[in-house]
Design a protein around this nucleic acid. Structure first.
Lengths: 215, 215
DNA sequence: AATTGTGAAATTGTTCACAGCA
DNA sequence: TGCTGTGAACAATTTCACAATT
């Protein structure tokens, strides 16, 4: 039985990285770029770049390199960035507010179309042009706004319950900022940003005097 | 020559995870916990938990499991969480403000002792009990406040320059929130939180209808 | 009886090295 | 000649399986 090679988790992450680099390279006016150049800009090896891309097809020209614009578009398509995504933000505390105005989301096609909270004082208020809606209307609001992804920026103790509710509505992706590990069945994709954990990693490095070099 | 096994990057990250779980387990009143139970709570395998811990010593008792409190303390020591760290925050925009009031940092021993910005309107103003200082005084302020780590929450185009300045002052760790890959020599530990990249990962999953299951 | 700690095996991910093409 | 695409070699990580211990 032929074993089908699936791109690894890290390959996908690096694809995201290449996408960003290609945006720069394109802005700098280059029409082609080699795996060597791409690698150099991100401290990777040329072989890794080529191998990563080869999971998805042959995009380059031997002897020449990769066509910048075309490759960027190809990667966009692979990552699903050749469209826009409707995103809902749950929780308009400090972090939620910051995320609501985070330009990079918008710039990459993630449009925050809906903002929800459970605090009566916040509901109805205006937040970056969007009226904050009542989280009790979660299901209705997610449906009406055709939401594809949810960003959870709520306190740790509220996150699990909300993740389950979101899942029930049929939304298939959550980006979680609460410092808890969400337990769900396998119907939904969840990524967590755990900022304290990153500081803990740094704490480990400093404590154990490891040599840095791109951790 | 005997090859010394170094814990991998992912082992360190999981240590952070175990630390959090142990805090819960302890709060729930348990005195011992098995690798099986720890694994279950984070969807890992018992063997992995044991292997991870074994890099740092033998903390368990065969037939019984691990002493919760003791293990938590051991891990705290390994990660350098048995002390407090002085953290400086550079950039008091939306994200910076949110980070300044992020409770989890404080709770895990990361104390934001200094807040810097380059905006004259913000300098001098009070932010969560701390006066915002002028980033032009960077070196002096980092020294006076005995800063161990810096959180960078500045626009993408300012991040690289600031990272270099921070490095010159001798601080050895940066947590970067700007959506750029910081290029530095290898004297400093850098971690980046790239929130758009996490959304892109989700975008890939939805686009390619991968089966979720704890990505 | 239960559970750790750990070499060995299996798997996964990265780098090498070179054939093949522009 | 220069650079891609890729199988094969290598390296790292995870899982297995079992002796050792309480």
């Amino acid at each position: 039985m032929p074993k089908i090679k699936r791109p690894s988790d890290s390959t996908i992450h690096r694809l995201s990285v290449y996408y960003r680099v290609l945006q720069s390279v394109e802005k700098e006016g280059y029409h082609t770029v080699s795996s060597k150049e791409l690698a150099k800009r991100e401290k990777l090896t040329p072989a890794q770049v080529r191998k990563d891309l080869s999971f998805f097809g042959s995009f380059g020209t031997r002897g020449l390199g990769y066509p910048v614009r075309e490759l960027r578009e190809k990667i966009a398509k692979i990552l699903g960035l050749d469209r826009t995504w409707n995103v809902a933000l749950i929780g308009v505390g400090n972090m939620g507010s910051a995320l609501a105005s985070y330009k990079e989301f918008q710039r990459q096609g993630f449009h925050i179309k809906l903002v929800l909270d459970n605090d009566q004082r916040k509901i109805g208020s205006n937040h970056k042009g969007l009226e904050v809606r009542d989280v009790r209307e979660l299901e209705k609001e997610l449906k009406t706004n055709k939401i594809d992804m949810v960003i959870l920026a709520v306190p740790a103790n509220a996150a699990q319950g909300l993740a389950e509710e979101v899942q029930k509505t049929g939304v298939k992706a959550i980006l979680n900022f609460a410092p808890v590990n969400l337990r769900t069945n396998d119907e939904i994709h969840i990524r967590s940003e755990n900022m304290a954990m990153e500081l803990e990693y740094l704490s480990f490095c400093l404590t154990n005097k490891t040599t840095p070099s791109s951790d």
